[in-house]
Design a protein around this nucleic acid. Structure first.
Lengths: 141, 141
DNA sequence: ATATTCTCGACCCTTTTAGTCGAGAAAGCA
DNA sequence: TGCTTTCTCGACTAAAAGGGTCGAGAATAT
């Protein structure tokens, strides 16, 4: 739900891939430059992202990263879920251990947290990567 | 939006005060015990909370903390806002500095973050402390 | 006086997050 | 073949955030 800098970088990297869809693999260095992300850090992030099945990479001269699905078929929710996993909100986050919950597992906070989480993921799930790609500036003549 | 352990402790402390409303000041040690919060840490938290105008304290023998408003008049939103301040969501959180935003301040993320934030605070604002106080177990005979 | 309870600032420790680095492996090119 | 490019992998470091503690002082009641 709360997105770290790293996870925002990941999203922006995917957006950049979406922006260049159809132009073949995009180099990490290119993404890093376009999105102002530290290069070596981005390498790590994209490496992780490969595990999601959303992107893949090719090495060598014409190498780089590319999307495995259309931008409109990738939701922010699916990316976020992959990056941080779904939090276990059935159990109240206020209680370190469930055994010593001061409300004896009848805790009103649990419902609050899960409602919040649901609201957030509703938004994430209805937002696709395509929605995040900036519109091309209209050509002037 | 994202609540730290500390901020959840704060909320639970207030809930405990609400639970005991009308019984005079509640000692920190009592709150700590009831809500399973580390005592010395709770002292710090309640000290901060005094600045919100929602609670106040009295020292000495019959001292302790107490609410300055009715539980139903305190929203979770007002507490959270005091604890963490409203994030500055007009500007995209992805960009370290606004000057070097790769999207040139026309960033689709900004809208996403603010929609998420709004959704979360809608829930926080419509939830009062009273809603979080567990129902008294019905007396059986 | 004295016991009680909040008050204040400084302090410490652990975990998370951000970011870097060097060497290696695949892919293309000459 | 050998050279260049670009991803790949694991280890590593640094900074920040978060959680929690402590001692001494100040108000309040008996």
């Amino acid at each position: 739900m709360y997105l770290t800098q790293r996870n925002q970088y990941a999203l922006r990297a995917i957006v950049e891939l979406a922006r260049q869809v159809g132009k073949g693999p995009v180099k990490v260095s290119e993404i890093a430059k376009a999105q102002a992300i530290p290069l070596r850090f981005l390498e790590v992030i994209l490496g992780q992202l490969k595990g999601s099945g959303l992107v893949d990479a090719k090495r060598g001269y014409y190498g780089g990263y590319f999307l495995l699905r259309q931008p409109e078929d990738i939701t922010v929710g699916s990316v976020v879920r992959f990056l941080q996993g779904e939090p276990d909100l059935k159990e109240c986050q206020s209680c370190i251990s469930n055994r010593q919950c001061p409300f004896e597992n009848n805790c009103a906070f649990a419902s609050l947290w899960s409602r919040v989480n649901e609201a957030v993921f509703n938004i994430y799930d209805e937002t696709t990567i395509k929605d995040l790609v900036p519109d091309e500036p209209v050509a002037r003549f």
